[in-house]
């Protein structure tokens, strides 16, 4: 027990810094994924010539394992597009790529879920298509999509431990490095697993609570 406390406590900075990187990369990834997902969703719904491309993109993001995407972004994109040049950027780009496909579908079902009559009514009162989107469709759609959006964030947090594979110094990376330094996998890896479980559990409980509250208030 004393041993365990010493290793974990003496390296608390490592764990904290790792957690910070995990939080950073997850937040960047979900923010980029939201923007990307929205663009792709709008392309798919309202831009006929590019619909097939958007559909292919969505299917690709949803049907390829996240680890494969991470490797692909990390090794192939720099040669193909000249970007990303850092592991951190490759990490969030891959996480965002995966989520943007799922979010595009979430957004689409949210927008399509709004009854057609609402759109027609808004247009016939003289609102432009843009204003209809801004003031009639989006406010309702956002309310409906919020729970799935937050769940996607949870998925990002869970997948983010994979970026340790490409040497992004997140929580998992630090844990593996500490293990190879101290050679105490039992303490270090168990504590890390506990941290991940606790974070994901707390986040998912919070999401469930918030979604229930939204539903009881507005639905």
């Amino acid at each position: 027990m004393g041993m365990m406390q010493r290793i974990l406590w003496n390296n608390r900075r490592e764990f904290l810094e790792g957690l910070l990187v995990t939080a950073q990369i997850s937040l960047i990834a979900i923010a980029v994924a939201m923007v990307g997902g929205l663009v792709i969703c709008l392309l798919r719904m309202y831009c006929r010539p590019l619909r097939w491309l958007a559909t292919l993109y969505i299917e690709f993001c949803r049907s390829t394992p996240i680890y494969v995407q991470l490797m692909w972004v990390n090794y192939v994109w720099p040669e193909l597009f000249g970007w990303p040049q850092s592991f951190f950027a490759a990490g969030w780009a891959a996480l965002a790529l995966q989520s943007s496909g799922y979010l595009a579908e979430t957004f689409r079902s949210g927008i399509e879920g709004i009854a057609r009559g609402q759109r027609e009514a808004a247009l016939s009162t003289g609102l432009t298509p843009f204003l209809t989107m801004r003031w009639v469709i989006l406010p309702q759609a956002v309310l409906m999509m919020t729970p799935s959006l937050m769940n996607q964030f949870l998925v990002v947090v869970k997948s983010s431990c994979l970026v340790s594979v490409i040497a992004v110094p997140d929580l998992m990376y630090r844990a593996l490095r500490l293990t190879s330094i101290w050679f105490e996998p039992i303490e270090i890896l168990s504590f890390t697993a506990f941290l991940y479980v606790a974070i994901v559990f707390v986040l998912s409980a919070a999401i469930k609570w918030y979604s229930d509250r939204l539903r009881s208030r507005y639905a």
Binding site: S159, V165, L189, S190, A193, Y196, V197, V200, F201
Partner: peptide
Amino acid sequence: ELFRNTPEYVLLVWVHFVPPL
């Protein structure tokens, strides 16, 4: 709850290194 909330990669590494020890 335990297994739904653990990232697969973390569980994979844990199972590979901790129980054998």
